[in-house]
Simulated scan of single mutants.
Amino acid sequence: MQKPLPYRSSWMTEELDDVSLIARTFFEREVVPNIERFAEQHEVDRETWLKAGAAGLLLISVPEEYGGGGGTFAHEAVVLQEQGWAGDDALGYHIHSAITPHYIVEYGTEEQKRAWLPKLASGEHVCAIAMTEPGTGSDLQAVKTTARRDGNDYVINGAKTFITNASHADIIIIVARTGDHGAKGISLIVAEVDDLPGFTRGRVLRKIGQHGNDTRELAFADMRVPVVNRLGEEGQGFYQLMHQLPQERLAVSVIAVAAAELAVRLATQYAKERKAFGKPIIEFQTMAHRLAECATDVLAARTFLDHCIGLHVDGKLDAVTASQIKYWSTDMQVSVIDRCLQVFGGYGYMMEYPIARMYAGARVQQIYAGTNEIMKELISRSL
């Protein structure tokens, strides 16, 4: 049973409590017992997505008429929170549920929504978004993947890397260049990739952490996708990305704070049980003060995060504030987990201990969804 937080988040409701319980049960039964196996195979079982769909956890904030749960981002947040508290970094839930479908909801036609969203909600299909390319990183205006118009099709050529859910993905939103250089030349095109000629899933990427997370390269060689699969108007892709990225950064922040809270909980429990020189190590001032600092850091992060979730649910979260919570919470996550690992001594360096997996998995949080250096640049422009 999860230990309650020091206070109740202002945006929580009884309905969200029920969602939390469902999510907690799902992660405890379907994911946590399989974390080591998922890490060995570098992906979750395909069936895991179907079970998440059956539990009603996928696309929980997408309108009900498209198979979703009809909730708000707060519903996504409690699922992400429970995932973080469970110590799971294998299931690419935030990409599949909290990020990618909302491009379809916001910019898709009625036909596109009804064709793609229900299968994503059930887990029958898995989705990914292909932004990053070798050499581009956070600079989305420098995308080199091209989509050339040929009759009723786009002919797509290029390569993507670091793509979450790439092994299982049936539907991929591709960030491609349909026009001149710069922001105005980018469009978002949805590819249904099952047996699609010209589509190749590249090598599975061996990462420092998050070993159970499905991450690999993708390649497109004269891959033809119908023009009707484009989301919105041609050339609007960059602006669509900029509008949706605050939610992605907030989702990353939810995971960061939950993971840090778990680290403090695990370290505190261990410090009460582990003895040195005849007494629990938590009775040593150095150790007690370390945990006191970490507990304070995560509480400060939680209150900042709650403020941002409340803003987003009310439609008031701007790009600058989203950048602030993303960089600050992920920096905090890495720092807190590092300090908590030290409590475990040599055992903290052993991968069979959750704190070691958390330490390795946390580092990428400062990199994806826009590096923290980019976040600070965006913030500084607003000053």
Rank of each mutant, 00 (worst) to 15 (best):
E43Y: 05
C127S: 15
H42P: 04
G108L: 05
A52F: 07
D89Q: 09
V126C: 11
T109P: 11
K51F: 11
G70P: 12
D45S: 13
K113E: 00
Y66N: 06
E65M: 09
D88W: 07
V105P: 11
Q81G: 04
S138H: 14
G69L: 03
L117S: 05
E65R: 15
G70E: 06
E110T: 15
E64W: 11
V155T: 11
Y93N: 04
E124W: 06
R148T: 15
F73C: 10
D45L: 08
D88V: 04
D45V: 04
G68R: 13
L120C: 09
R148Y: 04
R46A: 12
D88P: 04
G70H: 12
A86C: 03
A77Q: 10
V155E: 12
S97R: 01
H96S: 02
H96N: 11
P101K: 08
H102D: 00
G151K: 11
G84H: 07
V143H: 13
D150M: 06
V79H: 03
G70R: 12
R148E: 08
V62E: 01
W49S: 01
E47A: 13
Q83P: 01
P118S: 00
G135N: 04
Y103S: 05
E111Q: 14
S97C: 13
G71N: 10
E82I: 02
T109W: 01
L117R: 02
K144P: 00
E65S: 03
G69N: 04
I95K: 01
L57Q: 08
A115H: 14
E124D: 10
Y103G: 01
D45A: 07
G53K: 10
H102G: 01
H94P: 00
I156Y: 05
Q112R: 06
W85Y: 14
E106G: 13
W116G: 11
I95M: 09
A52Q: 07
T48E: 04
L58G: 06
H42G: 05
E43W: 02
E43D: 12
A121M: 10
I60E: 06
D89T: 13
G84A: 02
V155F: 10
A147L: 11
T132C: 02
A128R: 15
